[in-house]
Amino acid sequence: MSAASRPRAGGAMVEFDHVGLRYSPDAEVLADISFLLQPGSFYFLTGPSGAGKTSLLKMLYLAQRPTRGIVRMMGEDVVALPRARLPGFRRRIGVVFQDFRLIPHLSARDNIALPLRIAGVEEADLAGPVGEMLSWIGLAERAAALPATLSGGEQQRVAIARAVIARPQLLIADEPTGNVDPDMAMRLLGLFEALNRLGTTVVVATHDVHLISRIDNAQMMRLEKGRLADPTGALRFPPANRA
């Protein structure tokens, strides 16, 4: 990519510009974070525990506003976004949490259907997509099961299905393989890759360096002590491996 064809921030899925975050008057948890995430790309976010990965992800899925800097998402400044417009943006983002965060009194089917119900999809139109999603994650037989009766891997798959059923433009996963065995980890990664091929921008936070090599063309973002390193050069313009 030449400098002339350098992607404009306006075309990026996400743009962080000198973003800082602090929870107290102490030092910033995140400092001077700047990057662009391109539509349809696959990113791994790595770094040691306490580096600020979860805080960065919270800003990505709009659960946290930065204390300074600019965050643009899908072309809009989400820091200054009125609160009433946040739901519209959140419906375009799928999130897979490390601890799944399934609603315990809802069945696997109802947990998966949640984003569509929130979006106002009629009940008659839910059965098809939810059934397909249950089959896709291999839990069609366990659709009525409550989360407490599912294994960790099954819960993780339900959480992923819930995150992707509304076809989000951005999928964010926080340690999605942290609670599953290596075989299941690879299967889950396959799900993310399949979604990415369908055009979804994927950001996966992980400690597992082996996962990173499994995805072709994946870019890596590394956080250390609240600052972003760019070992693959993917976050620079033009990216190091394509210049």
């Binding site: 659960a63 009433a84 739901p87 959140r90 965060r101 984003p115 929130i118 979006a119």
Partner: peptide
């Protein structure tokens, strides 16, 4: 926890 989840899913 449920409210937080509903918010993150896009509930108003």
């Amino acid at each position: 926890a449920t409210i937080e989840m509903l918010h993150l899913i896009g509930a108003t």
